[in-house]
């Protein structure tokens, strides 16, 4: 048998009835009530009028959330899974543009060259009989840089007029390759900023004709 307090509780209405049904943007936890405020009450007791409108809006929005949105109960509490917001609101910043392809990427795409499969940083060194890093500390690319004796490449020795220490030549070559790569990176960056045509083959050069 229901007690007096229970029956009283049952009388509390949870429905919001308005001539124009409210619109909701549950993703933003937002309700839009296009019904006019009660003009008589607004003139007499403005705060009461606004309070009542607010209560109705709150009740309607909470009803909408509790009935129309999937609820998930976890150990932390009950969660309402909100849909994406629907009201169009401006972004803060423009949509990020995809990075411009580098000169090499364009060339590779044209020639149909696929990226090499990455197979880790380590490579097997047959002389040492163990796995060593390809680059970096004790990297494979530094092979022969600390050698006591270096075989002199006669051709290069003849071609270059200035004296080059044959023992440091290998290291200098590597450093030169790094610098070249940096130059290319800078060029690509500059090209993406200025928007210059990235790669135009010269007429009659035959590049791009082969298929």
């Amino acid at each position: 048998m229901p007690t007096a307090t229970e029956t009283k509780m049952e009388r509390l209405s949870v429905l919001v009835e308005k001539p124009i049904p409210l619109e909701f943007d549950v993703g933003n936890l937002c309700a839009f009530d296009s019904n006019p405020l009660d003009p008589i009450l607004y003139a007499e007791d403005r705060e009461k009028c606004l309070q009542e409108a607010a209560r109705d809006g709150a009740q309607a929005l909470i009803n909408q959330i509790l009935t129309q949105v999937p609820l998930k109960s976890t150990n932390d509490g009950v969660y309402a899974e909100l849909p994406a917001p629907v009201t169009p609101l401006p972004r803060e910043k423009p949509i990020p543009k995809p990075k411009d392809p580098t000169k090499w990427e364009l060339f590779a795409a044209k020639k149909g060259i696929k990226d090499k499969q990455k197979d880790g940083k380590l490579v097997y060194d047959e002389e040492k009989g163990e796995w060593v890093p390809k680059w970096g500390y004790k990297g494979k690319n530094k092979d022969g840089e600390g050698d006591w004796i270096v075989e002199v490449d006669e051709k290069k020795q003849k071609a270059g007029t200035e004296e080059v220490d044959p023992r440091s030549a290998s290291r200098e070559e590597r450093k030169e390759r790094i610098k070249k790569n940096e130059r290319q990176m800078k060029k690509n960056e500059k090209r993406s900023v200025t928007g210059a045509k990235p790669w135009a083959p010269k007429k009659g050069s035959g590049v791009g004709k082969r298929r």
């Binding site: 606004l50 607010a54 709150a58 959330i65 509490g77 009950v78 969660y79 309402a80 401006p90």
Partner: peptide, 30 residues
Amino acid sequence: SVFLDFFRGETINAVDVEGLQYMINVSAAE
């Protein structure tokens, strides 16, 4: 538009029902 953008806070995909603590009401008479 400005008030909704200003007050709406973070866009989230789930909200704790207990976390629905307060409401901002913007109203205008006819």
